[in-house]
Structures are given as C-alpha cells and as structure tokens.
Design a protein around this nucleic acid. Structure first.
Lengths: 241, 241
DNA sequence: TAGTGGTCTAGACCACTAC
DNA sequence: TAGTGGTCTAGACCACTAT
C-alpha cells in the first residue's frame, strides 16, 4: 500500500485540483463542480480518468453526484461535541447545545438473550431481552444508530410504551423509575455496514465511531448494553477524567 | 448516496463474490486471489470492471495487490483493547497484554506556541514548545502516530535526551520527575491523511481513531497536549466510568 | 433535444516478477 | 518470455434532468 507523493497519476492530480478548489471556495458549497466532459477537455484525459477522480471525492464525502444534473459540493458539517460521562443522556447533550434532535424507533423485538448479551448483562440462557434499534437525528439529518439491549425482567411489557416512542430514557424514567448509569464504553473507528450507511444516508467511506457501552442500575447491576454507530465527521466525543 | 440492494452492478457482484470467498476461507489469508484476467473470463466482463472490484477490496483492506505477482488476502488483525484512564501509559498497556511494542521518534522541533497550543496549554505568545512526532508499533507493525506538544519551560533542554529515544514517559520520569495525568480526551473517527497513511502503511480507506488528549501535572496545570492517530481496525479503546 | 452522470466494452502500453 | 498488476484511451449505450 505504499504511495509516494511524486508519482503523477492523472486521476489523483484531478482529485487534488478539485479538493483544492472546494477548500478555497472556488467551488462553493451546494454548487456544481465542472461537468465530467469539461474536466476531460481541461485536463485532456479520458472520461474514465475523470470519473476516478470524481469517485474519489464522492467516497471522501466532498461531493454528491446527481444523475442528469451534476456533482454538487457537500456542506461540511461542523462536528458536534458530545460529552460522555457516567450519567450522560443523548437528549441532555443536545438540549444544552440548543440543537434540534429527534429519535426514531426503527425496529424492536423480544427474544432469547444471545451468548454475548448473556455475558454482558449477566443473564441466563433462558432469559429474554428486548432489542431496540434507534435512529437519532440532529437538524433532521441522521446522526447515529444505536442497538440497545435490555433484560425483559427489568422492563416488563416494554412494548406497551413503544408505540409512541419519543425517548428511551423518558420511558425508563416514567414507567420504570430507572435511571441507568454508564459503567464503561469501548471506542472503535470503523466503516459503516451497507445497512447502516443507508440508514445514515452516508457515502460508504465516511468513517463511523463505534461506541459499545454498558449501563448499570445505581446498584451496580447491568441494565443496558448498547452499540452506537455515529457519523465520524459530525461527532466528537469528549471524556473528562 | 442512496444504494439499493437489487441493482446489478457487475463490479459489486464481483466484489461480493471475492469477499464471500475470503470470509469462508476459500481464498486463504496470505494467498493469492484469482488474477484479473481469470476473473474477466469467469464473469465475462471487461478488465476495467474487475479492477473496480479489486479496488474496492483493496480500499476496504481485504487484499493487497502486488505488482507482477497478484492480489494477496490480508491477515485480519485482532483488535487490541487499550484501557484509557487518567494515568494510562502506552507502554503499561502493552506490557500487561504481553505484546511486543516499540516507539520511534520520527521528528522533533522547538518553536513558538501556535494559537491552539497556547489555549490548550495555557501559554503566552512568547512561550516556546517542543513538538514530538512519535510512531508506535506493535509486533513490528505500525500502530499509531502521536503528535505531542509540551511547554519548553516544563522540559528545558529536552533535546539532550532525544538522541536515544525509547519512551517519552521514561524521559519525563527520569530527567524531570514528571508524571502527567490524563485530564480529558476527545474521540473522533476519521480517515488518515496521506502522510499518516504512508507512515502507518495503511490502505487509504482504513479508518483512524483520533484521540486528542490533555495531560496535566498532578497539581492540575496543563503539561502535555497530544493528538494520536490510531489504526481503527487494530484498536479498541476501553473507558471505565 | 441537449447535457449530465452511470455502466460497460475493447483495446493499448508500461513496469514488475518469475522462470 | 509469459503472466501479473498499473495506467490510460476511445469509444458505446443508457437513464435522468432541464428546456
């Protein structure tokens, strides 16, 4: 995977040219960059080469090509700083920053705990768990997908409250008097699965911050195991020690 | 950036075929996958299409093409769990896990503190800082690059000890009796810069875990500001609350 | 209808590796 | 020398958008 800076690959040259122009606002946000054919003549190369450059910028999230119209420069999202502490809530964080947020329950199910879930939550094979898939958005734009697993015994008949889902923590608080505390989190950088990329409306190559968390009862017993996938380019996670 | 699963793009079909075969060990680790020409005839497509599929797998880190030889399946690195706490050291973490690690000082300089550095470290415009660029490896494989900034006043004549660099924390301990404590860290997922990708010997599209940290004196005064870029596919960062 | 991006074919020449 | 990957050309046909 070695690369050297002096090799003259035409498509990289064109990609660099485009990125420089976007950076310096020569190609403004939400505006079109030159068409493929224009770039072909400008650089006297084949359309395939231009398309390689275009693909590169698309993958890196700089532009979005729209069939029949052209390639448009993406707005650069300013990363949102999210403070993670033992009692952080998504909603609290957003409220503090005055951001418009929303949660949507994509899917839920009740079933036997899988092996990993048993271990993380301290359950037996026969125990049941709820699995929720939640999409969170900020300013109407998809921001993260979280899979949350909770033991059925802690939130019996949870399905009764899922019809008008607004916030998981409201449900826990209002109907079960539960207030989970963060016990530990594992951070990882990865690329989105095709499914997550679709849901987050992401180009494939935008990295994802993967946060696997265990939340406890105030007593210390595990209550909630969650795996969040957050857009890397929209998110910074701050931890204070 | 919408994608639907039912569109039949030949190059995606080929890429899927290859990934399935790698996953199921039909194409074993460190072995060659079929050559481009073989894939061309197998799928009765043009070489360009096969090369799109190959590029996809390369970017995703599945294979490494070697000129004149073929495309070889990459070994899948098992992620190393790194515990981050207010007194974590890289070397301690690795020692505990019995891993062979090493640090290499790539570059150092002394100069006026930049604006951001002044803010983070509480310095004045006239203050000087040391900037170190450190490459850490595990089992001889590049793992992370860290830029560390320290005020000159805290580590005067640091250059005297950089000739035989082994570990930054050894120098701080042995020559300055300093033991920095982690105050806060900011996590972000991103893609590597071209330079970092080169140094880490990474395909471009392997995501990077970006950890920006502030370390303090035991007294609470800022002592060290660092920006680490860690291979996302080799690293999990655990935080306990 | 003209212009745009989306997909694909059929070649060419080169550099590197193995024999 | 034969086979491999690396780069690039010159087309074709299609679907979508604007007018």
């Amino acid at each position: 995977m070695k690369r050297s800076r002096d090799e003259s690959l035409r498509h990289l040259e064109i990609a660099d040219y485009l990125i420089r122009n976007i950076r310096s606002d020569q190609f403004a946000v939400n505006q079109k960059i030159p068409s493929e054919n224009e770039l072909c003549s400008q650089f006297t190369v084949n359309r395939n080469i231009v398309r390689q450059a275009i693909a590169r910028l698309t993958n890196l999230g700089w532009i979005t090509p729209i069939h029949g119209k052209g390639c448009f420069v993406n707005p650069i999202p300013a990363p949102i700083v999210y403070v993670l502490s033992n009692k952080t809530r998504f909603t609290d964080n957003m409220k503090k920053q005055g951001l418009e947020y929303s949660s949507k329950l994509l899917h839920w199910e009740k079933g036997a705990a899988k092996k990993e879930e048993q271990e993380k939550l301290g359950l037996r094979e026969t125990d049941l768990v709820y699995r929720l898939e939640i999409l969170r958005s900020i300013d109407q734009k998809p921001f993260s997908i979280t899979t949350t697993i909770m033991p059925e015994q802690d939130v019996p008949l949870l399905e009764n409250y899922l019809n008008q889902f607004v916030s998981l923590y409201e449900i826990l608080m209002d109907h079960y008097q539960l207030q989970p505390f963060r016990s530990k989190s594992i951070f990882q950088a990865s690329l989105p699965s095709l499914n997550d990329a679709d849901l987050l409306e992401l180009p494939e190559n935008i990295p994802i911050l993967h946060i696997e968390s265990l939340m406890n009862h105030p007593s210390g017993l595990p209550l909630e195991y969650s795996i969040a996938r957050v857009r890397g380019d929209m998110h910074k996670c701050l931890i204070e020690f």
